[in-house]
Design a binder for these strands. Structure first.
Lengths: 205, 205
DNA sequence: CTTTGTGGTATACATTTGTTCACCTATATT
DNA sequence: AATATAGGTGAACAAATGTATACCACAAAG
């Protein structure tokens, strides 16, 4: 990647910060204003230079500065699900808070999403409140799998056991008791395939 | 959060996909064009509705549709460290097995690396053999931090406690005893900032 | 029955924004 | 000395974009 002048790198930094805060990039004139450049063409030259050097891309109309992000093909963008709204499918836009990149090896399969854990139902297997779960959406799970079950519109993490006519959803926490539910009274949203713990208390979003 | 009509949710989805691909949001007219709506005001009404319901925000000029609480994390490549070779700095090329992409929010800071856990010294806090640790390289750690300590060239995970002239490295496992080491007999390679558990037994490499 | 929300067409207009051109000043390179 | 790159000013213009208004139709809620 070609090197940038001090000024160019200041301007790239501003564009990134602005985009991150607002969700859309600055206009040429806004860049000029921020750096006290009195003419739009002054700012435009910097943007042109950054495009030429491969740091930015441009579209046609107004305010179309894009950041050139070239992900390797091993990167997969995975949606992060917020509060699950009752009745709405878990992967509906209403539930998606954002997307984060994960390596393919952590997110193999088609319908992968991430959920934030609330509650202490699985502390005995190292899944604590605030942790993030990588979940593969699937209806059929196997004996003993850790699953996301939706009961009364609420998403819960439990270990799955099948009985003859019912299903046992067992919390991995000595202080909590397993729940026995009939088929039809719950939905399996998917299987937990990995757990991400943020030890410094940070949130992904 | 208020529910969306089918149409509104289609349009929100389009705006997110467009923004994710281009780095800037679509214009009102581009939305109209995509959905074969023949008048810009037709599309504008949908955007207005999405703003009113709290899913979008707007700025002043052209192409200023912002996404309320929608985040796209950027990618950071993080090296995965294999067996730590005695005497060689942990981040030396000899120790690096490969790199995986992680979101910035999981890998904040300069010198981040990933280690695979071997052994059961931290099972009581949910860190099991085979898990991956995201570690920030730093010499100074605080009371109670989970750290990577190098003793006799071997990397081990322990909880760190400082005494007057020694340091206690405590395994979080009821069956194991804390080790007391003198300053100089060990090295702090870094602090564990997050844990990744692969439940299906897969390896990152 | 009236109101509200949804979803749309059509037209006109104001504003923002991008772009170009001419010209200026440095600094570094050939 | 000539040339390229970086950084900038100023004015004029073209294009893209947002907005307002009027009007239509349908469905749900009061």
């Amino acid at each position: 990647m070609k090197t940038l002048t001090k000024r160019q790198s200041e301007i790239l930094k501003f564009i990134r910060e602005y985009s991150s805060i607002n969700g859309y990039p600055p206009s040429i004139r806004e860049i000029a204003k921020h750096f006290f450049i009195k003419s739009p063409s002054g700012a435009k030259k910097h943007v042109d230079a950054l495009v030429k050097k491969g740091y930015l891309s441009r579209g046609r109309g107004a305010r179309t500065i894009g950041e050139e992000r070239f992900y390797m093909d091993s990167v997969k963008m995975v949606p992060v699900i917020g509060k699950v709204a009752a009745g709405i499918p878990i992967l509906a836009v209403e539930n998606i808070m954002g997307e984060i990149p994960l390596p393919e090896s952590m997110a193999e399969g088609k319908e992968i999403f991430i959920l934030r854990v609330e509650g202490d139902s699985m502390t005995d297997v190292g899944i604590d409140s605030g942790d993030y779960l990588v979940v593969r959406q699937q209806q059929t799970v196997e004996q003993g799998d850790i699953v996301i079950a939706i009961i009364d519109g609420d998403a819960t993490v439990k270990r799955f056991f099948k009985r003859e006519n019912t299903v046992i959803l067992k919390p991995e926490n000595k202080n909590m008791n397993p729940i026995e539910v009939k088929k039809g009274d719950f939905l399996i949203a998917g299987k937990v395939i990995s757990v991400i713990k943020m030890l410094e208390g940070k949130k992904i979003f």
